[in-house]
Amino acid sequence: MIKKLRISVFAGIMILLGLISVAALGGELTGDEIMQRVDENQFISSGRMEAEMIIIDRGRENVKEMEMFVESDGEVTNGLVEFTNPRDRGTKYLLLDDELWMYFPEAEDLVRISGHMLREGMMGSDFSYQDALESEQLTDLYQFTLEGQEEINGRPVYVIKATAREDREPAYHSRRFWVDQERFVILKEEMYARDGRLLKEMVAEKVEEVEEGRWMPTEMVMEDKLREGSQTIYRIKEIDLDYEIPEGKISLDTLQ
């Protein structure tokens, strides 16, 4: 049986897409059951997206445009992001499970990204490479506690605290999620360090029904709290959740 995984496209892109598994606890549902609902809603087996990432800092803006492909069999998630804005045109990031490679169009060569770089912001954004590479189920990484219920923009949400399991070392030691009770979409997320310091905050500004009965965030704002005054807006312009990715497109072989 295929396990439904929390899918995140690397560099936070899939996180921005809201492909984050959440244990929404409440009512008769257990945390795991609610997480399963979220996964079912947000799981992408083969998809294509066009999006833009707007990096904002103290009134200055930088726009990155990209085309993305993601595929997952429920166990392994692979992704390809190709930037299309003039400055970065042709630059590609290739995610193969937990390995990240960067393709330079000038040299037409692939270079493996060192592990420590995964903590750094991708292309100057508030999303780290590590955000993206975390493709495991949240239930494998965290234990969940329902803290209460609130409203965000008039919509009832579950507030859920996630704490890292003792034997695991996820990118963030703990998280707090605000999950739409009706649509099982993450409307807000906070990421914390082991010492309790708030590291990042993500807010879904726009949620759309991408296909019948299936909702996803299509515009999100991420703030790296360690970089004062900085935020990154991620906006999906086009999404195809049934896209048939050509065989071999997301591979080292094709990019060499």
Binding site: H116, M117, R119, E120, R197, L226, R227, E228
Partner: peptide
């Protein structure tokens, strides 16, 4: 070798490579 880390006061940290 290559390595990266952060420097600077809390909440105004900078990436160093």
């Amino acid at each position: 070798v290559d390595y990266s880390w952060k420097v600077g006061p809390e909440y105004e940290e900078k990436d160093v490579y």
